[in-house]
């Protein structure tokens, strides 16, 4: 049952991009069903279709003296970063790019979001998006370090930064079993970097949509799609890092990987609906004084186990 991961031909990258898009779409459909009133859940699943049609038909907007370049880069950057993240994500047994530092690649892409979300907020030259952009930076200061240390736990256990090695290292025992803290912190961070509740303060209703407040038409579509794509890819990484990737009985690896990812993605979407939004300030002390030491202890525990095993 060895989960040998092999790098596939670059041509498959096109398929990978489509897969990310499809997963984002699935997430949006689940979200639509959850949002619909009871009794109209099935119709709610079509929400992303209606939303896509609506935003494609809607006119774009620009603002007086907007910083258009930064704005558009920020807007289009979200889906781009989500797809680039997926480059090192083993989809069952296949991966587009088997970088020896795959984990660092993921981290680098996720840090790009700092700039992109801020640019999407700064660009329009309007008060609400501006405040939203800066709110995201405050959130990022809180979630990024616990996220980075949560990432190192599987890397220490596998003795490698290569995603394929990390998946292979979970043969027999998934990392989630002995790294529950790192797993929970990672899942929370996925919600945070994909701008979902409880970490949606940058897009909150109290800012009239924050970073989204001035975007319409295809710009808004890209932001929303990017957000769902980030959640989908983030769930995929949680599966690869902690839930054994594509390992599982009988079915082919890619089916297992897909099933786990979609399940985790749906769970995160359900969780986010039942949590209130957290103000960045309220998160800051909790992240630095609780989540960060807890994650460090987790990494320490993993390191001790690894060294003891020799």
């Amino acid at each position: 049952m060895s989960a040998g991961v092999e790098q596939v031909s670059p041509v498959w990258a096109v398929v990978a991009a489509i897969a990310v898009l499809a997963a984002a779409f699935a997430g949006a459909a689940v979200d639509g069903a959850l949002q619909a009133r009871p009794g109209a859940r099935r119709a709610g699943m079509l929400a992303p279709v209606a939303e896509g049609a609506r935003l494609l038909r809607q006119r774009r907007r620009t603002l007086v003296a907007a910083d258009t370049l930064l704005w558009r880069v920020g807007v289009a950057g979200l889906p781009v970063v989500a797809v680039l993240m997926a480059a090192v994500l083993p989809f069952g047994r296949w991966v587009i790019s088997d970088l020896p530092v795959g984990l660092v690649w993921f981290n680098a892409m996720d840090v790009m979001l700092w700039a992109l979300v801020w640019m999407a907020g700064w660009g329009p030259n309007a008060a609400y998006p501006l405040v939203g952009g800066y709110r995201f930076l405050a959130l990022a200061l809180a979630y990024e370090l616990p996220l980075m240390f949560a990432l190192t736990a599987p890397a220490v256990a596998a003795g490698s930064l290569r995603m394929a090695d990390i998946v292979a290292g979970q043969d027999g025992l998934w990392y989630v079993v002995w790294m529950p803290v790192a797993f929970l912190v990672f899942c929370a961070s996925v919600l945070a970097f994909s701008l979902h509740r409880p970490f949606d303060a940058p897009l909150a209703r109290d800012l009239a949509g924050g970073v989204l407040a001035e975007a319409s038409g295809v710009d808004r579509l890209l932001l929303l799609a990017g957000r769902h794509a980030l959640l989908a890819v983030g769930s995929g990484f949680a599966v690869a890092l902690f839930l054994g990737g594509g390992s599982g009985p009988l079915l082919p690896a890619w089916v297992w990987f897909l099933a786990k990812t979609l399940l985790l993605q749906s769970v995160l979407l359900v969780v986010r609906r039942h949590l209130p939004s957290v103000r960045p300030q309220a998160l800051m002390a909790a992240a630095w004084a609780v989540a960060l030491p807890a994650t460090l202890l987790q990494v320490a525990g993993v390191a001790v186990v690894v060294v003891a095993r020799g």
Partner: peptide
């Protein structure tokens, strides 16, 4: 709006 499955907009840019 709930009955129709429509959405309350947060801002004019979002609204139809």
């Amino acid at each position: 709006l709930v009955r129709l499955g429509w959405v309350e907009a947060d801002s004019p840019s979002e609204a139809d």
